[in-house]
Simulated assay, not measured.
Amino acid sequence: MCTTIKNFYHLFGSFLLFFIWSCSGPSTNNAGSEADATMESASEEERASPLKTTSGEIGDKSIKVQYGSPGIKGREIWDDLVPYEEVWRTGANEATYITLEEEVLIEGEPLAPGKYSLFTIPRANDPWTVIFNAEWDLEHGHFQYDEEKDVLRVEVTPTWANESQEWLSIEVVADGLEVKWEKLVLPITIE
């Protein structure tokens, strides 16, 4: 009898969680509507870390990056909000991802066309590890990170600017990507 009741509560709990998730999760209706688009835009404006998209050309290769842009907001960033020696989603909220239309060289290493999540491992005095991972659509960023899905890891040395930048930005520049936040500049060479 006890086992039957436990099974019932387990099944009921699973059903309830699924029901809540399906009611609040993303819509799978591809038709969409103007009202849905307006609501989505409003919710993007309300995000504490706005969702940003940047794109550009490096040589003749098109690159697009999407990321959540957190602000400093008076917080200590390096080795506090963003711990050293731990995988960081290189942004906020969902995983940052990059879209490549053709093969590129990242710090001299080849990376095939496709979409990749972009993670980093920050370090105090050593080069950072920049990671391109096959699972690009991670809703909870580094909390879902799986090292076995890494496609490429390279080492990059950050530099430090004199002036602080409040909001994280990732820019496509002539020779790659630049991740900037607080006084950090992380140049990732792409060719």
Rank of each mutant, 00 (worst) to 15 (best):
I63S: 11
E109P: 02
W136C: 11
K149V: 04
E109K: 14
D79A: 09
T157L: 11
T53Y: 00
S22I: 07
I190Q: 09
D79F: 11
G91H: 03
V179Y: 03
A37R: 15
E102L: 05
Y97N: 15
I106T: 04
E155S: 13
K183L: 04
E34C: 14
P26G: 14
I77H: 02
T53W: 01
I131Q: 05
T28E: 07
I58G: 07
Q165A: 12
I20M: 13
L186I: 10
V82H: 05
S169Y: 00
K64C: 04
N93G: 03
G13W: 03
D175I: 03
T90P: 04
V179C: 02
K149P: 03
S62A: 14
G74W: 00
R75W: 02
E135Y: 05
V179S: 01
E171G: 00
K183G: 04
E107F: 03
K64P: 00
F15Y: 13
A48P: 00
V82Y: 05
S49L: 01
L81Y: 02
F132A: 10
F15A: 13
N30R: 10
T96Y: 00
K73S: 08
R75I: 03
I63W: 03
R123A: 14
E45N: 12
K64D: 02
I188K: 05
G32E: 15
E34L: 15
K6S: 06
I98P: 05
S43N: 11
G114W: 04
E86R: 12
E155W: 02
F19P: 01
S41W: 04
W78C: 06
R153W: 04
G56S: 08
E85L: 11
D150S: 10
L111E: 09
G56P: 05
W88K: 09
I106P: 00
I63V: 15
T159C: 03
A134T: 08
N162Y: 05
W181K: 09
Q165F: 01
E191T: 14
E103G: 10
S55W: 01
A42T: 11
T38M: 15
L51Q: 11
A42M: 13
Q165D: 06
W167Q: 13
S55P: 00
E135G: 05
S69F: 00
